[in-house]
């Protein structure tokens, strides 16, 4: 059971939109940006409020790639795998990150819940390819070496 504050937050978000079913997506988007994931308990709660079945809400939430029922790390790193970044060796950057963060195949979030590694197709900064973002902040013209610096500077900040 989640803390009461979660439900209060959701009530507040719903109040900002209304209880029509068409607001399902913006509501769960806001919930996700609040908690960096979509707690399944809240999805059921929202479904009830919008008078739709839990199955329906679940079918929508699972359709879109952006929604995650798993808790994400404190730093969400999104490596662009769009065409421009791909032809400029974005894959090498991704591989380096997997190595540096010691992620096993299929693993997205580090065991210490510090980093989540994802790919996206195009961040719209193609002129600076290859690109990645850390919590929406864009890092241009990445190389495997710069990846090492980036992670170690975040780690240093964390330890401080």
């Amino acid at each position: 059971m989640l803390d009461k504050s979660y439900y209060e937050k959701v009530d507040e978000i719903i109040a900002g939109y209304g209880t029509e079913s068409r607001f399902l997506i913006p509501i769960i988007q806001d919930v996700q940006s609040e908690y960096r994931y979509l707690p399944p308990e809240l999805l059921k709660y929202i479904a009830d409020k919008l008078h739709i079945t839990e199955a329906k809400a679940y079918s929508v939430a699972t359709f879109y790639e952006n929604f995650s029922f798993d808790q994400k790390g404190k730093y969400v790193i999104k490596v662009c795998d769009g065409t421009a970044c791909h032809v400029r060796k974005g894959t090498d950057v991704l591989e380096k990150l997997r190595e540096v963060l010691q992620l096993k195949p299929g693993q997205k979030t580090t065991d210490d819940m510090l980093f989540t590694l994802e790919t996206v197709s195009c961040l719209g900064a193609c002129g600076l390819a290859p690109v990645l973002t850390v919590n929406d902040e864009v890092h241009p013209a990445m190389t495997p070496d710069k990846v090492i610096d980036l992670i170690s500077s975040i780690m240093k900040e964390e330890q401080a």
């Binding site: 079913s21 068409r22 997506i25 929508v60 879109y64 790639e65 952006n66 197709s121």
Partner: peptide, 26 residues
Amino acid sequence: INRGAGAFVCGEGSALTASIEGERGM
């Protein structure tokens, strides 16, 4: 304004309107 949620297919007209309606974008 409606924000997308990471589905390329939502660029297709009928999928896009479905998405605004709160449905799966198909």
